[in-house]
Design a protein around this nucleic acid. Structure first.
Lengths: 224, 224
DNA sequence: CAAAATAAATGACAATTGTCATTTATTGGA
DNA sequence: TCCAATAAATGACAATTGTCATTTATTTTG
């Protein structure tokens, strides 16, 4: 018997999902929740195998719920339900650690199959949604792990690297000064040097480079 | 009629795939390739609708092929074939921009369905593979995008979002002007509004936020 | 040691960026 | 229709940022 918790703020949806799910003898609807806080509470209280959860809910939205629940109990499987399969929703669901993503318009058979699949450790995505997942990933790849510029990076001083990191955290020159204890002029000169070496134009581009190159992950001595 | 190119270094696989695919009247196998270089050449020469491609191939591996082909013609759909659904293979396929990912043990019916799905603009992943996709994404999310500020993001105008994206690409105000066709003053006012809404201080922090929040992945109408 | 390279600082300057009060035009209700 | 809200623009101003030539001190090394 697979225990299911249903979370949606609209009563109609909640009830029809309950009817639908409990009509199959393999499933047992152990609880209903109508907002985010309640969902998290019932998740820990009832320990369902699967949660069917709307992305949009009052108090705590679905994404936040998933994070909270998964943080404490990763074994509870969560399928996100939504009306639209916008890239943003999918992206956020994936990000939060959900195990599946379904559109509310799904047929009874498909829903039942999806729950089973997820319960068994698989994940469920419809073709259209899957296409978007691929597309999101493609974009991430493009914007994140771009071209290799390790040669340029090797040309950088340690001080310059630290300044790049601080810029990558959004620090102003004054903040960099109080972190590294150089004069502001020196920081500026260093930044000019960085710009020349990396062939960039301003600190914003440095920040972007910092994140995309992985420089932010490096660590130095005497650092917080 | 859907034109298919089959790329695999093993003759047995190549032939059985050809047999399998061409047994369905909707498909036409327009070519076979036995290594990466040949695949790329035939892709541009024959312009198939779909390529079934092994991940492991001599000369150029599947991942590199996908990048090269997609770079020049994004309309050619590519389904990666592999014997194992290791996270690494999946990750690399997604990253390179493939449209689908299938295990070689797939049944005839499923293969045919997958080709059709991908041809129609969907993507095809099996449940087990899908589960791994979700898991990969979860891991990436943990190390990259920590903060959830969807409420703040919801308060943003579409224009503001586009400006954020452009800042996230390192554009200056003048460059934003020539992209969005507003006056520079308007752009500045918008940026002020963004800073207030997101509680940030300057454009550099906007750029950082843009990348870490996933805003860079959104797309709008009339965009390149 | 002396010359050269390097690191840090200074100050003056220009360009870019961000803020704000105000104006104009447009739009969607009441 | 009139009002309120909104989107876009303007101009003036301040703050931050980036550039550059020059100086000082320190270190390297031939």
């Amino acid at each position: 018997m697979i225990n299911v918790l249903i979370a949606d703020d609209q009563e109609i949806i909640r009830d029809s999902l309950e009817l639908l799910v409990s009509s199959d003898e393999r499933f047992d609807v152990v609880g209903l929740a109508e907002n985010g806080r309640e969902t998290v509470e019932k998740a820990f209280e009832l320990r369902p195998d699967i949660i069917l959860m709307d992305i949009r809910m009052p108090e705590l939205n679905g994404i936040e719920c998933v994070s909270l629940i998964k943080e404490r109990d990763d074994s509870i499987k969560i399928i996100m339900l939504t009306t639209f399969d916008s890239e943003e929703y999918i992206y956020n669901s994936l990000k939060s650690g959900a195990d599946g993503f379904l559109l509310k318009g799904i047929s009874k058979v498909d829903l039942i199959n999806s729950i089973e699949t997820v319960y068994k450790g698989g994940a469920s995505i419809e073709p259209d949604t899957a296409q978007k997942v691929f597309s999101i990933f493609g974009k991430m790849a493009k914007s994140f792990f771009i071209n290799d510029r390790s040669d340029d990076i090797e040309a950088l001083t340690e001080t310059e690297l630290r300044i790049i990191q601080l810029i990558g955290r959004g620090c102003s020159n004054k903040e960099i000064v109080s972190e590294l204890h150089f004069s502001e002029g020196t920081i500026r000169n260093n930044i000019s040097a960085i710009l020349k070496k990396l062939d960039l134009r301003d600190r914003t581009q440095i920040a972007i480079f910092a994140i995309q190159s992985g420089i932010m992950l490096k660590s130095f001595h005497g650092e917080s």
